[in-house]
Design a protein around this nucleic acid. Sequence first.
RNA 1: GGAGAGGUGCCUGAGAGGCCGAAAGGAGCAGUUUGCUAAACUGUCGUACGUGUUAAAGCGUACCGAGGGUUCGAAUCCCUCCCUCUCCGCCA
Length: 423
Amino acid sequence: MLQLATLRERTDFVLQRLAVKNIDAKPVVDRVLSIDEDRRKVQMELDQLLNQQNTIAKQVGELYKSGKKAEGDELKNKSTALKQTVAELSDRLTSLEEELNQELVKLPNMPSERVPKGKTPEDNEVVHQEGALPSLDASAKPHWEIAAQYDIIDFELGVKLTGAGFPVYKGKGAKLQRALINYFLDKAGEAGYREIQPPILVNKDSGYGTGQLPDKDAQMYHVQLDEFYLIPTAEVPVTNIFRDVIVKAEELPVKLCAYTPCFRREAGSYGKDVRGLNRLHQFDKVEIVQVQHPDKSYDTLDEMVEHVAGLLRALQLPFRILRLCGGDMSFSSALTYDFEVYSAAQKKWLEVSSVSNFETFQANRMKLRYRAGTDKPVLAHTLNGSALALPRIVAALLENNQTPEGVVLPDAIRAYTGFDRID
RNA sequence: GGAGAGGUGCCUGAGAGGCCGAAAGGAGCAGUUUGCUAAACUGUCGUACGUGUUAAAGCGUACCGAGGGUUCGAAUCCCUCCCUCUCCGCCA
């Protein structure tokens, strides 16, 4: 969430930035500022009274010790008289703080200066494109037909076991999954990311820390009996490693990567966009996460973008990079690059990665700070990106590399699969 | 799942109604000593909010797992919850 101090000191700036996300934040900001003013008044009053109580309590103790019972008793009454007011003020303070927080979490992150204005995905800016788009002949099949032909992904079987959106990978399909995961993890390792294997169920606090809760709980599967949530991305457990943590400045950047399955309810999405591997309830993803010094986080973002580009290049998939416009960015991001891969039979660009700088937005929620020397702790910047999400990569690989003799795999992963083609 | 023990600052660990934001040691940081390393000594060493300020210092308040309660006064007493550890059972 945004920092109160920023809201207070640079109100107009905040409003102007949020306008890029097409949000008129003025009503909320005004409410925040006015609640905050009340809050400070109440706290001042309350602190003063508490101070009186503390002073009296000390005096009572001393009086009793020196045997002056009567005087002590008299003072006691004085303190008792304050009690009701103290209780009232302190209730008031608590509710003001809650109110303040409620308003504050409504405000999305401010987009950085580089974010283009715009409302819809059409307004996203294509900043890079590479790789020739394959031209397949008319008999080219979409990936779900190829998957069925070679019996490597079974969507119907997934429906039987669980439901739609939970495919079963079989034989070379399953091996391909494993190969891609290992390949991505190895590449992340080479780039200096430390591998993490986190829990894939998390508690409420973690969901809140990265911003899925309280608002987007409909997107997560919820294990009600134990109050756990299935993670929608490894970002949740991995970033929450740093919840309530103060890292040393010299330890920055912290670079972590993790493979996890991801679970998304995707309530309300049906139709041909969800055909095959295009949109699933369970999928595999390798995520890269960094905690970085505020001065360096945008260089880091570029570095992460380059890492993802390198993966797609190695897989010989045509891709483009989009800088998301204000209207299409996520709630907590300050700047996001999406990667899309061209899936030649569907003739569609499929999103396979999203790389974002959250600046202090998540850090503020999580109280993730760094400390230089003996200075006061300062909020760090957090970044993350998919490197990569598997299903749409697999879709593009199957479609783009189909031949009459089978699907020919790119060199980069042959050492991992142990086979060159799916047939 | 059953029985017991316990949750205190960066760590170890004392405190068992007022003298406790909290002993002591370690780590860290700054300095002294030293040819260097090591050691020794001295000092410093939590966070948040409020106030103050150009900035700070300072001052106030809160925090000893969480939330309630008793009391003039709670880390300390009472209640509820959460978590961890040990033993037993079950088990990949």
